[in-house]
């Protein structure tokens, strides 16, 4: 796993629920690329098409609340997001994202401190976020051992394959 991630950011608000990340009308889709193309369309239809590849999504409190649909992190990953940083995350979304290898980082008040389109460098192991343009550094929480173990393996799937002796 990459412990340092650099990417341009987009900023969304509080309580971005999984219906806004991935609306119910697209839930029957199974192709990951197609799923990614609808990402965050409940917030703004144009986000996915213009998303900077490898970018970071910045949210407010309770990002990912609502339904347990794994389509939400699948959409974020396939839109090209490399991490999400927010004040707080909803629980099921948190598990789903970590399971798929998408780092979710808590940094209180982050959406107020950064500006749309800025480039941030996130260091997951050190727990720091650096704004490339201004040199400002913000603190963030470190992930728990269980989440780190899964992320380091590249997600829960490689971990399970190992456990079941299949490569």
């Amino acid at each position: 796993m990459k412990t340092e991630i650099t990417g341009k950011i987009i900023i969304v608000g509080d309580n971005i629920d999984t219906d806004q990340i991935y609306p119910g009308r697209f839930l029957a889709l199974t192709d990951p690329k197609e799923i990614g193309s609808h990402c965050l369309c409940g917030v703004d239809e144009n986000i996915a098409a213009n998303f900077p590849q490898g970018g970071i999504v910045i949210g407010g409190r309770n990002f990912g609340c609502g339904s347990s649909r794994e389509h939400a992190p699948i959409a974020l990953l396939n839109m090209g997001a490399s991490a999400v940083i927010a004040d707080s995350f909803a629980r099921i979304f948190f598990r789903n994202a970590i399971n798929l290898g998408l780092p979710l980082i808590i940094s209180k008040g982050i959406s107020q401190k950064v500006k749309e389109g800025q480039t941030l460098t996130l260091n997951i192991t050190e727990g720091t976020i650096k704004a490339e343009e201004t040199g400002e550094v913000f603190a963030c929480e470190q992930l728990g051992d269980q989440a780190m173990k899964i992320l380091e393996a590249g997600g829960i799937k490689p971990l399970m394959r190992e456990k079941f002796g299949k490569k």
Partner: peptide
Amino acid sequence: TGCGATDMATILM
């Protein structure tokens, strides 16, 4: 409690 698809797959296994 609720979970996503991949967590569920680990339970099924």
